[in-house]
Design a binder for these strands. Structure first.
Lengths: 221, 221
DNA sequence: CGTTGTCTTGATACTTTTCAAGGCGGGTGG
DNA sequence: CCACCCGCCTTGAAAAGTATCAAGACAACG
């Protein structure tokens, strides 16, 4: 089964030989979560590193006023990193499976042993977190300084670029996309309708979007 | 001079003995930046790790529309970490000295050698970035979901808590504080005036603020 | 002491949220 | 296999919050 190969999915172990991967595989535990189920919640003890073997997980925080902020969308091969980082801390975010999801976990102490044994792992982890910091910095800048219209236009072009196609299905419900972009589902509906009226995109059934004019989309302010 | 002891300031080297600190000290380079000068800009090569030996540095990004977003305020003992993370990349943010500032730098290749030699350093670096990720996650959640009023109230109470006092001087000009909180200087003026009218704070000359009712301030929505 | 940048306050305009209601779609159970 | 039901999405109208623009006061600095 695919979930038995999660260790090979993960870039942080990329420099290891297959014998070492076997060792790691042996200390990994496997879990399955149905769609909609909770993987972890705020205040849960932070005692293991999670690898998404298959599926999709949304990681979000709750603000003081109860509103939700989507921070990351973990796909197959992504890791939930917090556990690698801290000693004796509790989580500050929630994780929820959006589709049926397989997860492998490594206890923090085991993972820290691995990092001591194979220094390349910690360098790789640093790289993963560096990328995440960069992404988050851009997200912060974007939500704090740009209009909803510009943020949505950016999201569409970036998603298309990542998928290397002009026609793609939105990977999230509008409700979740709204919490990611720091707005409301209604505003997203309206702005997409606006883009369509302007001829920049075409909306098709099933949350599918076709980009007609990527250049103009990027000029949206 | 203080700038010759920057290595001792930094928590990432905390587990090392004094002989090892001497070695590191010998490969460190010292720089001085007057207030208002630029330490680095976007697209600069990312080739060294910076330690703030003395002073204050604002790290910010520019959005597509040209607006500025303050990401971090580095104080004495803080590091600018990006350089530790990536190979062959360029910066995405700007660094500017807010007051006369002394900086020590370590070339990236030297730093990566150090991480290989002393694994405790990379664990410590992971911890630093973990904290920064956490801070940034909270900042993102806050700017995306809460009102200007709530964000400012939070900023005031958090700053007071960090300084362990009820009366303190704002460490930033309102213009910079505005780009940090994702708003405008005018809005900050107005909200502070509102808090004062509500009796929650007292404003004194020289950007000094006294908190009268921290509990009520935290309830601000 | 003057100059320059920063801050405050007001009036206005705009974007976006909120609230409400109707339509669509996907999944479940009969 | 169809019908129903629930959750998601869309669209409208109104309200709220905040940005913008402008002008005057203040402060810091040389």
């Amino acid at each position: 089964m695919a979930e038995h190969e999660c260790v090979q999915l993960v870039p942080i172990f990329s420099e290891l030989g297959s014998e070492q991967l076997d060792i790691i595989e042996s200390i990994v535990r496997h879990h399955h979560y149905p769609a909609g189920s909770t993987l972890f919640g705020a205040d849960d003890p932070l005692d293991s590193l999670m690898i998404v073997a298959n599926g999709q997980v949304k990681v979000y925080q709750l603000a003081a006023n109860g509103r939700e902020q989507l921070l990351y969308l973990l796909q197959t091969g992504d890791i939930d990193g917090e556990a690698a980082l801290f000693e004796n801390q509790r989580r500050t975010s929630f994780g929820e499976a959006l589709v049926p999801t397989d997860v492998c976990s490594i206890r923090r102490s085991d993972f820290q042993d691995l990092m001591q044994k194979y220094p390349s792992i910690s360098i790789n982890v640093l790289n993963v977190f560096g990328k995440r910091l960069n992404q988050l910095e851009r997200q912060t800048t974007s939500t704090a300084t740009e209009s909803v219209e510009a943020r949505l236009a950016n999201y569409i072009t970036e998603t298309a670029a990542a998928l290397k196609t002009d026609t793609f299905k939105l990977p999230l419900k509008k409700k979740d996309l709204a919490t990611f972009l720091g707005t409301t589902p209604e505003s997203i509906s309206r702005k997409l309708a606006l883009f369509e009226r302007q001829g920049l995109i075409t909306q098709k059934p099933g949350k599918v979007i076709e980009i007609n004019d990527a250049d103009q989309l990027l000029l949206t302010e």
